[in-house]
Design a protein around this nucleic acid. Structure first.
Lengths: 193, 193, 193, 193
DNA sequence: TATGAATGAGTATTCATTCAT
DNA sequence: GATGAATGAATACTCATTCAT
């Protein structure tokens, strides 16, 4: 399997750095290759084309989020607790990898519609898990049992996304992790009403 | 003033249509010019370059939002009422102009970081007015008086934005306006807690 | 009509020279553009892509052959006379334009199957006229009335083609025009038997 | 001697198949290697480079033609008989190996001028034998004793070549062998006149 | 003002060849 | 001898912008 070979991850990581440092449109294959320490042609032994690299970047990195969330769902106590952990985890991961934050919040969104659709379908897995938490909470009476799940999900994800994007756009000028408890508190109020 | 001449608005509107119908990257100057019924070169009599058109599109259209919001702030009764009206207005305008919704929620976000930063600074005026409402509400005791205004603003705007973007991405398959009251209710709960 | 503008023919002629002097695979767009005295991009105002240039080269130049042959058929006296004139004309045109001879006999044959099929369909018009002469001659009793027209055509065209290709491959070392009467004589014998 | 080892012929035959099935430009070294059941690198133990394979293909296969023709010259009765046998043999071999016919008549001609000059020099041996037959026939009075041998050779070879190429281009839709007697008859008439 | 023909910089991808194992 | 992962040079085409008319 190609994605188990060391160069696969090496190129993925190089792509994140190259995109974060040069911007989406200035992250040419040659720059990614140079960053990865391989020849341009080597990239194509592991990826079908440039789009394939970008999708794989998102897939690999989003995979981490999905796995953590699955873990949280398995071990979390209440729905409230699970949602809180999810928010904290989301903030923590990106707060600790600014390159990745730049790439997911800003650069990858410049991709064309086609690529964005593919990215979105990868994101769906994550949002489905979020839905699970919300529905469980509604059932258990922790969240407002009459709310519209889609809108609740959009509030939770939209708020998290906007918060992190603003942090990136403000060039990491403040501590993202400090804001997590406030976001958590506000969202939980919204869900409980 | 150039922006008072008929061709200025003609080109702005042509750009919205061209981008909505062809996508950001496929909306070449020649297509915008054709849509506007002018020659390619004429565009450059009214705009410095392509980026200038896109910024102007956002500026002109966002201006409508800002004016409405100023009106709402002037005439609204309570802060809760003002926020409710703002949400409704935001949804209504975009629900009634799908081309514009596509352009602002999807296509314009494919622009490079530079352009997005400029768009963001235009957005700030709108967000400042939102902050005004929030602060007033905190002061009056309608909203939680200890909350972090920046995060509250990010929740309100992030939720609205995510809701509308999803609606566009789902190709307008459901009625956006119907969701407004639910969004309103959920956000107000978040702010009151 | 694009093909009536001066730059159209200018680029066609530049392509013939560039291909003859550099070889098919070394005749890059930039070389053709330079030879034509225009920018690379200008080429694409007149031609869809590189293949389109090459097809057009063949079409334009073969058009001359077809027109001459139509003239010959209209004004020639006997079928024998028409065939003789056709052979002479074919030799004369290429003997007087060595660049063109190199391109049609050697370089253009390096194109891929797709392009070669298109070239072949252009050639068919010329071969149809040749068939006309042969059939008329058979009918009039000038040529063997029982012969297979397809094979007769292949003998005539194959011989002409081989003769000229050899001349090009031998770097024009001998006088091509001098050989025309001998070729003519030999072919007419073949057709009369 | 490398060319006596089994893998040498194995690669040659693989090349014919790979080229016939994929076309000249799509017959990459990797495809030839795969077809031959060896690794890419192994090819370079037997051939200097890709051009060397192609030349060798032509050389090996043309060798068969040359040997048959030498046999024919040795055993044939009259010059007329020898020429007839040569034509029949040429048609028969290619009619019975369509892969080879495709490669020699279509695909190998897409090679660059350099390679085609080398191919042509290999062909010369075959054409020399043809010349022998023609000269003998002129001397014996079977053919027109005043004809130009070079042109006679070009007529014979050009006609055969064009006939077979057309057959390949028409995707073997008719029986090539049936046409041989007609070609023979027509050419002999040309030579006798 | 308005035109639109002309410009030319910039980049993903393929594939023959090598060489460490 | 045999392998196959790695190399890196080389090129068509697009499109924002200009400027002579």
């Amino acid at each position: 399997m190609k994605r188990d070979k060391p160069k696969y991850k090496q190129i993925i990581d190089a792509a994140v750095i190259a995109i974060a440092e040069n911007g989406y449109h200035q992250a040419q294959i040659s720059k990614i290759a140079k960053q990865a320490g391989v020849a341009d042609g080597t990239i194509y032994l592991y990826f079908k084309n440039k789009e394939d690299i970008l999708i794989s970047v998102f897939q690999e990195k989003m995979g981490v989020f999905v796995e953590s969330l699955q873990e949280i769902i398995k071990n979390g106590e209440s729905s409230t607790d699970k949602l809180s952990q999810m928010i904290d985890n989301h903030f923590n991961v990106l707060a600790n990898d600014r390159h990745l934050a730049t790439v997911t919040q800003l650069e990858l969104r410049q991709s064309n519609k086609d690529l964005r659709l593919k990215i979105n379908s990868i994101l769906k897995e994550y949002l489905k898990l979020l839905d699970e938490i919300l529905i469980e909470g509604m059932f258990k009476g922790e969240f407002n049992s009459t709310m519209d799940v889609r809108i609740a999900r959009q509030m939770v994800f939209g708020t998290i996304d906007e918060t992190i994007t603003s942090w990136v756009m403000n060039e990491f000028r403040y501590d993202l992790i400090e804001t997590a408890p406030k976001v958590r508190h506000m969202l939980l109020n919204g869900l409980k009403g």
